[in-house]
Amino acid sequence: MELIDVYIELCDKETEETLSEQNAEFLNKPISYLKQHQNEFLYIESPTFETIKAESLSLELDDVFKTYMVLFGLKVQKKHASTIKTYLNENLHGSEIKNFSAMFSGEDGLWDLNIPIDLMEGFQENMMIEEVLSITINFVSNLLNAIEQNNEN
């Protein structure tokens, strides 16, 4: 899936200040960039994310677990809690601790999700950021399909 009208910021984790704006070429860098710059996170906006009911995605390396994480707000109702948590438990692979979080924000009316990309099927640390975004979008699309199927039952 190609990202359209992509907007990218490199930000400082501690202050959340924008360090620099990047163009789409930045997506051709390896995801390991975040391991080499652990004080930074990547903030990405694209209308493409509307297909997965999100406005933006942030990518970072978790300080504690040293796993690559994607953070975003998912625009689905609170009532889908069990489907979301079941999907994450069943579809994140690996023997590591499944260090995801899924919390509903009543204030924003969306789910604040924090998911380890390392545990998504197909992830490899030598991938380019664009490839990581692609498997992330696919993972979230499958989550939305699970919610839809559960809703029909």
Rank of each mutant, 00 (worst) to 15 (best):
S58L: 13
N91Y: 12
Y68L: 10
I84R: 08
L59R: 03
Y43F: 11
V64Y: 09
A102Y: 01
V64D: 15
T83F: 09
Y43D: 14
N89R: 14
K66Y: 01
I84F: 03
E60N: 12
I97F: 14
L92D: 10
Y87P: 05
S101Y: 06
W111E: 01
K85Q: 11
N89L: 14
P116V: 04
S105K: 00
M103W: 11
Y87D: 03
L113W: 00
K78W: 12
S105M: 06
Q77W: 09
L88W: 00
V70C: 12
A81I: 07
E96D: 15
D108K: 07
N99C: 06
E55Y: 05
H93A: 15
L113P: 00
F104W: 09
E55P: 00
F100G: 14
F72I: 03
D108H: 02
H93K: 15
H80Q: 13
T51W: 03
M69L: 09
E55K: 01
E55L: 08
L59T: 01
L71F: 09
I117C: 12
T48N: 11
N114W: 01
K85T: 07
K79D: 03
K53F: 05
S46V: 01
K98H: 15
S82H: 10
S56N: 14
K53L: 11
A54W: 04
D63F: 06
N89I: 06
F49A: 07
E50P: 01
T51P: 00
S105T: 01
I117A: 12
A81R: 10
F100N: 12
V64F: 09
L88M: 10
Q77F: 08
F104A: 08
L59S: 07
F65Y: 13
P47A: 00
D63W: 07
S82D: 14
S56E: 15
H80I: 05
D112W: 02
E107C: 01
F65N: 13
L57W: 12
L113N: 04
N91P: 07
G94I: 08
E50A: 13
Y43C: 06
T67V: 12
T51F: 04
S56A: 12
G106K: 05
I44Y: 05
G106H: 06
G109T: 04
N114F: 02
S58F: 06
N89F: 07
I84H: 02
K53T: 04
P47V: 03
T48F: 06
Y68T: 07
F100S: 10
G73K: 09
K75A: 14
N91D: 03
P116S: 12
K79R: 14
N114M: 03
E96P: 02
Y87V: 02
